[in-house]
C-alpha cells in the first residue's frame, strides 16, 4: 500500500516533468534546428529513464493482481486456474509466448482474448460482459487494462519467445503480415506508411521500423505502457485500436481475429527482445 501511495505521488509529478522535457527540448532545438527532432527525442528519452522507477502503471499492476485473485463471476472463482500459455495458473513469463494457439478454445489468442476466454470458461461471465470496457477513462477504470498490466509486468526481464509453429499460428502470422501492408481509406495509409522504414518521425514523434529486428523488439517490449498524456495504462489492443484510428480506418474491434493476427506478426518479429513493460510513454 505504501508503495502504491508513493507511486501515486510520483504520478502527479510525471506530467509536469514530461512537459518540462518537451519545453526544454524546444529551447534546445532553436539553436540546433537541423537536428531539432533528434535533440527532442533524446531529451524525452532522458526524462523517461529518470522516471523509470516511478511508473504509475504500478497502480494498474497492483489492481490487476487483486482482480486476478478475486473470486468473481457467476461461478465465483478466481482467474488463478487460467492457462495463459504456460499451464494453468502460470503468470510469470506468460506474456512472452503470446499470441498462441489454445486447444480448449480452438483459437489463436493474444493476452486480452485469452483473458476473455478464461472469464467465460472459468468464471462463467457471458462473452459480451467479459469483453466490456476494454479501455478505461478517468471515471471508468478498466479491469482488463489492470489485468494486462499485471500479467505483462510479470514477464519483465524475460525474452519474447513466440513459437508460431502451429498451422493456425502460421496462418495468423501470414495474415498479420498482409494486414501490415494493407493500404486503404481516404489517406491510402497502411501500417507500413509509418512503420516500414528507419528513422522516421511524425512531427517530433519517432516511429519505430517494425520490419527491422532491433526496432521491432524495442517497440513491442515496451507495450503495454502508461500513457502520460492520457493518465492511463494502455494494453496492446489499445495500441492497435488507436493506430487504426489515426490511419483513418474504421474501428478495430477488441480481441477481433484481425487484431490477434496483427499482434502475432508484431510479437513474433520481436522474438528475442527483453520485455520491459508496462513502460512509460508520452
Amino acid at each position: 500500500m505504501y508503495k502504491a501511495m508513493r507511486t501515486l505521488i510520483k504520478a502527479a509529478t510525471v506530467s509536469a516533468l514530461i512537459t518540462a522535457a518537451i519545453v526544454s527540448s524546444a529551447f534546445a532545438q532553436s539553436s540546433l534546428s537541423n537536428q531539432g527532432g533528434d535533440q527532442a527525442i533524446k531529451e524525452i528519452e532522458r526524462y523517461r529513464q529518470a522516471l523509470g522507477d516511478g511508473n504509475p502503471a504500478e497502480l494498474w499492476e497492483a489492481r490487476g493482481e487483486d482482480i486476478w485473485k478475486q473470486k468473481r463471476g457467476p461461478k465465483m472463482v478466481s482467474l488463478e486456474q487460467c492457462d495463459l500459455g504456460l499451464g494453468a495458473g502460470v503468470v510469470k513469463g506468460a506474456y512472452t509466448v503470446l499470441p498462441k494457439f489454445f486447444s480448449d478454445s480452438d483459437k489463436v489468442e493474444d493476452l486480452e482474448s485469452r483473458l476473455v476466454t478464461c472469464m467465460v470458461m472459468l468464471q462463467g461471465f457471458p462473452y459480451d460482459q467479459a469483453k466490456k470496457n476494454p479501455f478505461g477513462g478517468p471515471d471508468n477504470k478498466s479491469d482488463m487494462e489492470a489485468l494486462v498490466a499485471y500479467i505483462s509486468g510479470s514477464s519483465r526481464g524475460m525474452k519474447m519467445n513466440v513459437t508460431g509453429n502451429h498451422p493456425d499460428e502460421k496462418k495468423y502470422y501470414a495474415l498479420g503480415r498482409k494486414m501490415f501492408f494493407h493500404r486503404g481509406g481516404p489517406h491510402d495509409f497502411s501500417c507500413a506508411s509509418c512503420h516500414g522504414a528507419d528513422g522516421q518521425r511524425i512531427r517530433l514523434q519517432a516511429l519505430p521500423n517494425l520490419l527491422k529486428q532491433e526496432t521491432a523488439r524495442s517497440a513491442y517490449t515496451t507495450w503495454p505502457a502508461y500513457r502520460v498524456s492520457q493518465g492511463e495504462a494502455r494494453s496492446f489492443q489499445w495500441r492497435l485500436f488507436d493506430c487504426f484510428r489515426q490511419q483513418r480506418f474504421p474501428e478495430l474491434e477488441f480481441t477481433s481475429d484481425a487484431s490477434i493476427a496483427l499482434t502475432m506478426f508484431l510479437a513474433k518479429n520481436a522474438n528475442g527482445g527483453v520485455m520491459n513493460a508496462p513502460a512509460i510513454k508520452r
Binding site: 495474415l175 498482409k178 494486414m179 494493407h182 486503404g184 481509406g185 481516404p186 487504426f244 484510428r245 483513418r248 480506418f249 474504421p250 474501428e251 478495430l252 474491434e253 477481433s256 481475429d257 484481425a258 487484431s259 493476427a261
Partner: peptide, 20 residues
Amino acid sequence: ALEMMQASFKTRGQASVDRL
C-alpha cells in the same frame, strides 16, 4: 486478410468499413 479485416472492423462515425 481482407475477409478477416471486414469481420474485425466496424463502422464508426465517418469511418465506414468501406474504407477497407
